[in-house]
Design a protein around this nucleic acid. Structure first.
Ligand code: ZN
Length: 444
DNA sequence: CGGTGAGCCTGTTCGC
DNA sequence: TGCGAACAGGCTCACC
């Protein structure tokens, strides 16, 4: 006998009949055998123990010719069964299969989802949960998909772009594949002896994490109700872009987080790069704006024989002396800012400001949009979980630069996560650029 | 018509 | 410790 699956339905192909089975919330199947059966795999089913904790929820027992049993167990009795023939189970209007949408694994991109989204009156999350659009996405996974796609679950589905839908489809595949691989998500323990439970619950970014810090930005995860379902999201990571025209973009992030990759992608898209580090260097050249002031403050011992400032000496002083660092910054930052303001004057051009200390120097106020390039957070999280410690408790042990990073991330408009592959980062950047392009077209 | 909420069920958890 | 209320992974249908 054959068993197939379509969406959340199991299709039992008996000799003459088709039985459709939907487990709803808590339905489960157990392989079993009677006590003195020749078949010995699975658990021993003793129907005479009617009131046992387990048996009282067994509502159906399939007896097969090899004496194996299949028990249908469902605490809440939400599960449903439908009986059809081979002739009509795919076509009978009463068959739940006829209303089902596409299998997400077969989607090559977001074209189909986009076509559905445009006619959809409700939110993005409800679009994902609607089995007549895509099959197999439940409440946990809808939240996780929205999080990974950085789309607010409450966003009206018809406002989704084609790129949003591309991203949603690819994240759907990612989430469902991973969940299948790990045996699903066991979020409540209705499990009995010998029950295998899933492990995907350990991978959840938002579901069931209300009030806990977002793994990407540290913002406490929010919980609301959408379509009557508990809905979890990061109010910071899953934000819409500001609705003004975006001409000047500031990018920041820890050293070697991958900022250069982001800026080169923006340059390819026609943005003019403004490199604050380079400007700061240029200011210190003999005869330039900061040269004299820095010399007056730090003395002639920072000079090389040719009269130029030796930057490594300056760094040495500043690294161990916080007062000196503040002083140096107060000399350089206004100059850098003045140069940047001058450079971005041309209203017809778009600019990308690469500024390591974007917020510290107050340069975020020049930007229509700010981006933080984040890295290694996932790796950190994996380590924490592997050690069996709570991310929350460990938060205090984070090194200061990471703490700074998290503070910055809470201020920033967009976070690009560069912890995974180059391709993954590239995709985020490309879809961001496309989003900004669309936005600017509308707001013109 | 669209959107909301009740209903189906039982068990667990949380606050008083 | 007891006790009631809220809540739970899904989906349908009545009602406003
Ligand atoms: Zn976040």
């Amino acid at each position: 006998m054959d068993i197939e699956r379509y969406g959340k339905f199991l299709i039992f192909k008996f000799e003459e009949k088709i039985l459709l089975s939907h487990l709803r919330m808590e339905g489960k199947y157990y392989l079993a055998h009677y006590e003195n059966s020749s078949y010995q795999k699975g658990l021993t089913y003793q129907p005479e123990e009617e009131d046992s904790k387990f048996n009282k929820h067994v509502h159906l027992v399939f007896e097969f010719t090899d004496e194996s049993l299949l028990l249908y167990h469902d605490v809440r009795k939400f599960g449903r069964f439908y009986l059809f023939t081979y002739n009509d189970y795919l076509t009978n209007p009463r068959s739940p299969l006829v209303k089902l949408g596409h299998e997400p694994f077969n989607e090559k991109d977001g074209t189909y989802l986009y076509s559905k989204a445009q006619k959809f009156k409700k939110t993005t999350k409800e679009l994902l949960l609607d089995q007549s659009v895509l099959v197999g996405i439940g409440n946990i996974y809808a939240d996780e998909i929205c999080f990974l796609a950085k789309i607010p679950p409450q966003k009206s589905a018809f406002t989704l772009t084609k790129e949003d839908c591309d991203l949603l489809v690819s994240k759907t595949q990612e989430v469902l594949n991973k969940a299948l691989e790990l045996g699903g998500s066991t979020v409540r323990s209705y499990h009995f002896a010998n029950d295998a439970s899933g492990r995907f619950q350990n991978e959840l970014n938002v579901y069931g994490r209300e009030g806990e810090p977002c793994y990407l930005c540290g913002t406490p995860i929010s919980k609301t109700k959408i379509g009557g379902r508990g809905t979890h999201f990061c109010a910071h990571c899953q934000q819409e872009l500001p609705s003004k025209k975006i001409r000047v973009i500031g990018v920041t992030g820890l050293i070697s987080a991958g900022k250069s990759m982001v800026s080169s992608a923006f340059q390819k898209a026609g943005y003019h790069l403004v490199d604050a580090d380079q400007i700061a260097k240029d200011c210190l050249v003999k005869g330039e704006s900061c040269y004299q002031k820095v010399l007056e403050t730090f003395g002639r011992e920072i000079l090389r024989s040719d009269g130029e400032i030796e930057r490594s000496k300056l760094r040495e002083i500043v690294v161990k002396d916080e007062v000196a660092l503040t002083k140096l910054n107060s000399l350089i930052h206004p100059e850098v800012e003045a140069v940047i303001v001058e450079k971005i004057k041309d209203e017809r051009k778009c600019f990308l400001l690469d500024v390591p200390l974007l917020f510290e120097a107050g340069l975020d106020k020049l930007c229509d949009l700010t981006i933080f390039v984040n890295t290694h957070e996932k790796v950190r999280r994996k380590r924490l979980i592997a050690r069996g410690t709570m991310p929350l408790k460990e938060a205090a042990k984070l090194n200061s630069s990471l703490l700074e990073a998290i503070k910055k991330m809470a201020k920033v408009d967009v976070i690009i996560d560069n912890s995974l592959t180059r391709e993954a980062t590239d995709f985020q950047v490309k879809s961001l650029i496309e989003k900004i392009r669309q936005l600017n077209l509308i707001s013109k």
